[in-house]
């Protein structure tokens, strides 16, 4: 939540500020390689994008990728499922829309406040909910998401109900952000920054602690890890980041409906994480790309999205439960040996 903003300044200078010692070169390459590659990819997309529509898709992928990375920290690393993340996305989107359109707040302030609010909500409900395991956690998070969805659908005076809500075009430093081409750079920067921070996080001691949460409680506790606190804070961070991108998405598209908060949206987010690879930051980006493009690629199947999603979920879980990126990486390693 707040570390998003704090992070901006040092993040851009950090790779330069810490020149890699010679012996660390290989390590730095391994660590920074994917970040640089992602940066290059982000820089190259506008050159090959043939139309405004392609740029629109790129922006959507970027937004989803950030959410998938944040959700992957919770689901893939810490092993805690959430079937309610669309609810947090909607808090960001509706929070930003309501605060700016109904109460005249500056949109960016509304965005920040609603992201923090989502983080605080997750923090408050996280302690009791995250004590639950497996199916019960899935059901509890699903219930939380559904309640958020129902509130948004029913409080018509505030949210416009099923008809949705409009947001006016965001202007930053005198620049009207009125096209996918402009939003692309903003979303691209957020994605790159999130990617870098997520990689750092999973490489740090806290990353190990998160991975230990996936195992038996007795193990993590015997290593001195405060299980509840660590689950709760990663849940809160993930919720805040998801809300932030929900808000960014709302400001970008200029129109939101409760559909963005519904159960299918939560499933899509989970699908991104599982398909790309649980416990892989890069996998989350790949998963976001595939799930976002899937309906476009399969336009003739647009009425059958639930069938297609369902089949993919089952096939992935049965044949490559670790997801695309880790499975591919494993195969490559095996091949090299």
């Amino acid at each position: 939540m707040t570390n998003m903003n704090e992070a901006v300044a040092p993040a851009q200078s950090a790779p330069i500020a810490t020149p890699p010692a010679l012996k660390l070169k290989a390590d730095s390459l391994r660590r920074l390689g994917p970040v640089v590659a992602l940066g290059l990819a982000i820089a190259l997309v506008p050159l090959i994008a043939g139309s405004a529509y392609h740029m629109h898709m790129a922006v959507m992928i970027g937004i989803h990728a950030v959410i998938a990375i944040s959700l992957n920290l919770l689901v893939g690393y810490a092993g805690q499922i959430s079937l309610g993340h669309a609810g947090f996305m909607a808090i960001g989107a509706y929070g930003t829309a309501i605060l700016s359109a109904r109460y005249g707040w500056p949109p960016l302030l509304g965005l920040g406040v609603s992201s923090i609010a989502a983080g605080l909500l997750a923090f408050a409900v996280g302690r009791p909910i995250l004590r639950l395991k497996g199916y019960y956690l899935a059901m509890a998070t699903l219930g939380l998401g559904m309640i958020i969805y129902l509130v948004i659908s029913n409080e018509v005076w505030l949210t416009g109900g099923p008809d949705g809500m409009s947001l006016s075009v965001l202007t930053v430093f005198g620049i009207e952000l009125d096209s996918a081409g402009k939003w692309y750079w903003i979303v691209g920067a957020i994605l790159l920054l999130t990617y870098w921070m997520a990689r750092n996080l999973v490489d740090a001691p806290i990353g190990r602690a998160l991975r230990a949460l996936e195992g038996p409680d007795a193990l993590a506790a015997s290593a001195g890890i405060d299980i509840s606190w660590n689950k709760v804070r990663i849940f809160a961070v993930s919720a805040a980041l998801t809300a932030l991108m929900g808000g960014v998405g709302a400001l970008y598209s200029g129109f939101i409906t409760p559909k963005s908060a519904d159960f299918m949206q939560s499933i899509e987010l989970i699908l991104m994480v599982i398909l790309g690879g649980m416990g892989s930051v890069f996998g989350a980006v790949v998963g976001a790309g595939i799930v976002t493009m899937l309906p476009q690629v399969l336009t003739s199947l647009e009425h059958y999205e639930s069938l297609v999603y369902g089949v993919i979920l089952i096939l992935v879980m049965v044949f490559m439960p670790k997801g695309l990126v880790p499975t591919t990486a494993h195969l490559i390693r095996k091949f090299r040996r």
């Binding site: 570390n3 992070a7 997520a198």
Partner: peptide, 18 residues
């Protein structure tokens, strides 16, 4: 290394900023 968890700084923000 997991066993050293309590001796290490496990705050999120400094870790994310490396």
């Amino acid at each position: 290394m997991l066993g050293s968890h309590l001796q290490l700084d496990s705050r999120l923000a400094p870790a994310a900023l490396r």
